[in-house]
């Protein structure tokens, strides 16, 4: 009897083809849709977190015509600042670090999804083309009031 039945060969061959198509699609989405995953930016010493740049002065800073840096401190249980306001069409670079434990940042309506590990600075960029209020939430458990750790981007 043959070791691998021809039906099985067909089934497994199809699996490989589907997986390869998937991998190619995912890889090309980096270029086609201009996506990037969070990658190393810089480190920050938790001991001197609040006294040294950039997190000694969190806030929204205009760095270009339609471009802003949002320097955000994540701490139990708040984002500082918890609200930022930008004009329609703005590009916002979120630069965020944690002063205590692991937190997360998901900005609704965008692809911003960061895990904020103490010691690391995390960065992601989003462009807000529609007016409105966009919620951002902490996405990693950080203590009993984790569910109250949220903020919003106001676009007008």
């Amino acid at each position: 009897m043959e070791m691998i039945h021809r039906y099985e060969r067909f089934f497994l061959g199809s699996t490989v083809v589907i997986l390869i198509i998937g991998m190619v699609a995912v890889t090309s989405s980096f270029f086609v849709n201009d996506l990037e995953l969070p990658s190393p930016v810089d480190t920050v010493d938790p001991a001197t977190f609040t006294s040294e740049p950039p997190f000694n002065n969190p806030g929204l800073f205009q760095v270009g015509e339609n471009e802003y840096d949002a320097i955000i401190t994540a701490q139990a249980w708040a984002f500082i600042p918890g609200q930022i306001t930008v004009p329609v069409g703005s590009t916002v670079n979120f630069k965020i670090g944690s002063v205590d434990v692991v937190h997360g940042l998901i900005v609704h309506g965008t692809n911003v999804n960061l895990t904020i590990v103490p010691g690391q600075i995390s960065e992601a960029t989003a462009t807000f083309d529609e007016p409105g209020e966009f919620l951002f939430v902490c996405s990693e458990y950080c203590g009993i009031l984790h569910h109250n750790m949220a903020g919003r981007v106001i676009v007008n």
């Binding site: 995912v26 995953l37 969070p38 190393p40 960061l114 590990v117 690391q120």
Partner: peptide
């Protein structure tokens, strides 16, 4: 994948292996 402490190219290696374990 959403942690900034790990470079993209290393995530690629694990991403491909993750597809392979589906086999």
């Amino acid at each position: 994948f959403t942690e900034s402490g790990i470079p993209q190219w290393m995530k690629n290696i694990h991403g491909i292996a993750t597809f392979a374990i589906f086999f």
